[in-house]
Write a protein that binds this DNA or RNA. Structure first.
Lengths: 188, 188
DNA sequence: ACTTAAATAGACAACTTTGTCTATTTATTT
DNA sequence: AAATAAATAGACAAAGTTGTCTATTTAAGT
């Protein structure tokens, strides 16, 4: 079962969209640049995606799936239930370093294109709610010290992660995400 | 000492820029819309600001000053040193409600125009560093329970505030900022 | 090999973008 | 009241935007 012709084109487009939308922003990236750097024809793009907004939605959905799958795999490799919680912080730090502190793709999308299409906001809410739920499950099994309730600890890890990514993207270094990890370590 | 002619124009422009850049984004706001809604001529804008980027920088600097002054005044009205810490959370929640959960203006600017001009990133870093320092001073005088060190508590409040604003702007409700307040309350 | 489907290059329309420039009107200051 | 400075309306250039359409080439399935 080899890849179909259309899927190759779609993948090339989405790879380029991912890179450009993230690195230079949705509004600063023109369709012409997407097709040039994808090495495909303009008509091909508009055969697979009705509009630029549609491309944005597809990019977000695909990114969401890949990103979350990597998070689950990253945490699964850790055995200790408390260390699993810290792995969530490590994952975010590693990703931000890889992305050169460009910030969270969902938040960027929310800030730039959030108002135009409800599907975009929906996808972002899905992604964030899913992470929070994931953290919640890890907290429940962690056997933490109960300085905070399960719900509170979940919220704390979630918010400090979000805040840490924001701070890392402002100061262009991992310090805040590392500090967050140490604090969580103390609280569990 | 009444306002000079030029200053009135500058204020009108910056008021409009503030509103439009925040509500619809920097890249989605054209110079033509700014001059129309400011009720000024295009040549007037370009007499006071060299370029659109210059206008963005000026908007961020002015917003930074006003926002921080309001924060200081808001916290100063609270007497109890521990409640001052919680007031920081309240201030962010109130502001986000007023702004209809549009998120943090600095983060939005960072995501959208951060790469184009170093002055923009600088201004954002200034603002965030200043808030963190401000929280640090409040923590030092708070007489908190020392579950966390001063530095750790400062970082925690800072990150949960940033994360709370992000979460509020994603879910379009104040729940996460309110949850953050309760958790901080427990930790001090 | 032949037919059907898909991808291509690129011209084009219609519109928007930032920034400049001119000619005119409105304030302010001496 | 005359001179100086500032703001105005709006045309304009040059480039960029999304999206459509045609004519041609390439690949796949039977």
């Amino acid at each position: 079962m080899t890849k179909q012709r259309g899927q190759v084109v779609i993948d090339k487009i989405l790879d380029t969209a991912d890179r450009l939308f993230y690195n230079q922003g949705y509004n600063s990236t023109g369709i012409n640049q997407v097709i040039e750097e994808s090495d495909i024809a303009k008509a091909s793009l508009y055969k697979h995606f009705e509009s630029k907004t549609d491309l944005m939605v597809a990019y977000l959905q695909r990114f969401h799936q890949g990103w979350f799958a990597r998070l689950e795999a990253y945490v699964a490799r850790v055995a200790d239930p408390k260390l699993k919680l810290l792995a969530v912080l490590d994952y975010h730090r590693e990703r931000q370093q890889l992305r050169e502190y460009g910030g969270c793709p969902f938040i960027k999308a929310n800030n730039e294109a959030g108002m135009s299409d409800t599907r975009i906001l929906s996808e972002i809410q899905n992604a964030k709610a899913r992470v929070k739920k994931f953290i919640g499950k890890l907290v429940a099994k962690s056997g933490h010290r109960k300085i905070l309730t399960n719900k509170e600890l979940t919220e704390t890890i979630f918010l400090m992660t979000e805040g840490g990514v924001v701070a890392a993207s402002v100061f262009k270094k991992p310090a805040d995400l590392q500090a967050a990890k140490k604090i969580i370590q103390k609280l569990i």
